[in-house]
Write a protein that binds this DNA or RNA. Structure first.
Lengths: 227, 227
DNA sequence: TGACACATACCAACCGGTCGGTATGTAATA
DNA sequence: TATTACATACCGACCGGTTGGTATGTGTCA
C-alpha cells in the first residue's frame, strides 16, 4: 500500500499540471518524466534498443511531448547523462560516509558504500553512463563526450579525497590521485559488467572488496578484514 | 588492381566452391565470414545498433546466406561469443608470456600483455563479450549465458596460474584464486569502458598498471616500478 | 492574444525475417 | 558412365511491423 501511494504521487496520467505554488505535488514536467524514464529504461535495455516510444510509454507522455523537449533521441541521451550526473552527485554528497572527517576514512567509506548499494535489480544499481558510452562511443561523439564529462566529474570528486589522504598518509607515493580515482571508476564499471554477465552482484561485491584492499595497501594499512 | 583481385579472390559471386584439396585458397564459408564480421562490427557499433544487413555487407554475403547459417540475429550473437572465446583462448595460449615457467611471472606477464595490446583503434582491442552482455543481459538470456560462459572460461584459465602462484608464494592468504581472476576481468572490462569514454587507451593502461601493482602487493613483492 | 506545453495523427525509411529459386556436390542405381 | 535423387550453400526480392521524426491541432496561462 505505501508502495502504491508512492508510485501514484508522481506517476499517473491525467491531472499532471496542477497546483503551481500552494502545498503538495510540485508538478513534474514531461521533460523530467522523460529523463527519469531514460535513466530506468536505458539501463535495462541499453541505449540503441530503447525506442522513443518506450520512453514515452514509461514516462506517460506522448511523442509530441518528447520532440517538444528534445531535438532527437541522441539529444535526450546527452541530457540524460547530465541529469544522471546531477542526481548521483547529490546522492553521494548526502551519503553517510561524507560525515567522516579523515579523508582516507572517507575514501574507504566511499568504496564500502559503493559495494553496499549493489542491491535489488541489476538495472537499478548499474551506471547509465557506462551503459551508454559502451554503445555510442563511436557512433555518437556527443553522447561519448557527455558520458566522459559526467564520469570525469565524479572521478574528480573522488580524487579530492584521495589527494587529501595522500598528502596526509603517503605524500611520497609515486601514483597520482587522478589516476587512482579513475581506477576506482574502472573497477565500478567492470563490476557492473560482471554483475550483468552473472546476473547477480556477488562477483561485483568481491571485486569492490579487492579495490578496497588495494587502496589500503597503497596507504600501508594493515590487512583489515571487515566485510 | 591488386585490390580488386584480392577482393575478388574470396568475395565475388559465382565460382565460389573451387579447389577442394590442391594448393591455395582453403575457402572461407559464409558462416565464418559472418562471424568475423560480427566480431568487428558489433565491437564498433554495439549489438543492437548492428543490423543484419550491416553484417552481410561487411562479410560480403547476402541475407539468404545469413539465415541459412543462423536462425536469427540472436543466434548469431551466441555463436559469435563462442567463436570469440575460441579465438581469444588460442590468442592468449600462444602469447609470449606463456613461456615463463614461474606461475607468478606468468600472471604478471599476462597483465603486462593485456596492457600492451591496447593499441590501434578502440574497436580492435575491446572485448566483444563485455559489449554484448552490457546490452543484452536483460533482453536476451541466451546471449547473457553465452557471454558469461566465455568470460568464465577465460577467467578460469587465469585462475589456474593464480592458484599455482598462490600455493607457491602465498599459501595462507585469505583471498581466493577464483575471485582474484574475476577481479582481473573486472579491471579489463572497466578499462575498456574508460577507453571508450576517453576515446583512447591511456586511462585503461594506467588502470591495468594499478592491477599489476595490486597483484604484486598480494604476493608481497616489493613495489617494482617498471612500466 | 500569443507563447508555451503538450496531444493526435501520420509518414517514409528501415529492420528482422521469409520465401521461391539456383548452382553445385554427392551418393545410389542402372 | 549416365541418370536420378537429394542435400547443401547461397541468392535477392519481398513483407509487415517498427522506428525516429514531423505536421498540425488544442487547451492553458501570463
Amino acid at each position: 500500500m505505501p508502495a502504491k501511494a508512492t508510485t501514484r504521487t508522481r506517476a499517473a496520467g491525467k491531472p499532471s499540471g496542477r497546483r503551481t505554488g500552494q502545498g503538495a505535488l510540485p508538478k513534474i514536467s514531461a521533460r523530467e518524466k522523460l529523463l527519469d524514464a531514460a535513466v530506468h529504461v536505458v539501463r535495462q535495455k541499453g541505449y540503441a534498443a530503447t525506442t522513443v516510444d518506450d520512453l514515452c510509454k514509461e514516462a506517460g507522455v506522448t511523442k509530441g511531448a518528447f520532440f517538444h523537449h528534445f531535438e532527437s533521441k541522441e539529444d535526450l541521451a546527452v541530457a540524460a547523462a547530465a541529469y544522471w550526473s546531477d542526481f548521483t552527485t547529490e546522492f553521494f554528497n548526502s551519503a553517510p560516509y561524507q560525515q567522516l572527517t579523515d579523508p582516507l576514512d572517507r575514501l574507504l567509506g566511499y568504496i564500502d558504500f559503493r559495494r553496499e548499494i549493489l542491491r535489488g535489480k541489476i538495472e537499478d544499481f548499474t551506471c547509465l553512463l557506462g551503459t551508454m558510452v559502451q554503445e555510442a562511443y563511436e557512433t555518437s561523439p556527443k553522447i561519448r563526450k557527455a558520458c566522459d564529462a559526467s564520469i570525469s566529474r565524479h572521478a574528480a570528486a573522488v580524487a579530492e579525497d584521495i589527494a587529501a589522504a595522500k598528502q596526509l598518509y603517503a605524500p611520497d607515493a609515486t601514483w597520482s590521485a587522478q589516476e587512482l580515482a579513475l581506477f576506482t571508476q574502472v573497477v565500478m564499471q567492470g563490476s557492473f559488467i560482471l554483475a550483468k554477465a552473472k546476473h547477480g552482484p556477488k562477483a561485483a561485491e568481491a571485486s569492490i572488496l579487492h579495490l578496497k584492499r588495494y587502496v589500503e595497501c597503497l596507504f600501508n594499512k594493515k590487512q583489515g578484514d571487515e566485510p
